[in-house]
């Protein structure tokens, strides 16, 4: 029995990957990567969800039964990393546009 959010994860990852593979505009490639990242983050966060569970704060937990905070920590780190990576790639695109006057990934000089 596959849950609905796992289906969404797969849809997002496949959509993002297809954008990376088929889109020629470099900015759209970066957007595709962000869609994959969204899918993966959704996957991680849905992994940590437990129905009726309590946030992992000692003083708030009634009988010391709490959610394991690992997936949330993973997701936060992944989001931060993804942000830096996106910024770096977009700055590469700016510099590439200055040199090549194009955003087309087919316009390349390194080949063969």
């Amino acid at each position: 029995m596959i849950s609905l959010h796992f289906l969404f994860v797969i849809v997002l990852v496949v959509l993002g990957l297809s954008a990376v593979v088929f889109k020629r505009n470099m900015i759209k490639i970066v957007m595709g990567l962000n869609v994959i990242a969204g899918g993966v983050n959704l996957f991680l966060i849905s992994m940590g969800y437990r129905q009726g569970a309590v946030a992992p704060i000692f003083t708030n937990a009634p009988d010391l039964l709490m959610v394991l905070p690992t997936p949330q920590a993973l997701t936060l780190t992944a989001i931060v990393i993804n942000l830096t990576v996106t910024a770096l790639m977009l700055s590469f695109i700016i510099m590439l546009y200055k040199h090549y006057r194009s955003l087309d990934s087919f316009k390349r000089r390194l080949l063969g």
């Binding site: 990957l17 593979v21 490639i29 990934s105 087919f106 390349r108 000089r109 080949l111 063969g112």
Partner: peptide
């Protein structure tokens, strides 16, 4: 062989998939 090595980033991602 050289005809594979197109140098297009989309092909790199495709190879990864």
């Amino acid at each position: 062989l050289r005809s594979w090595h197109t140098g297009i980033v989309n092909d790199y991602a495709f190879a990864f998939a």
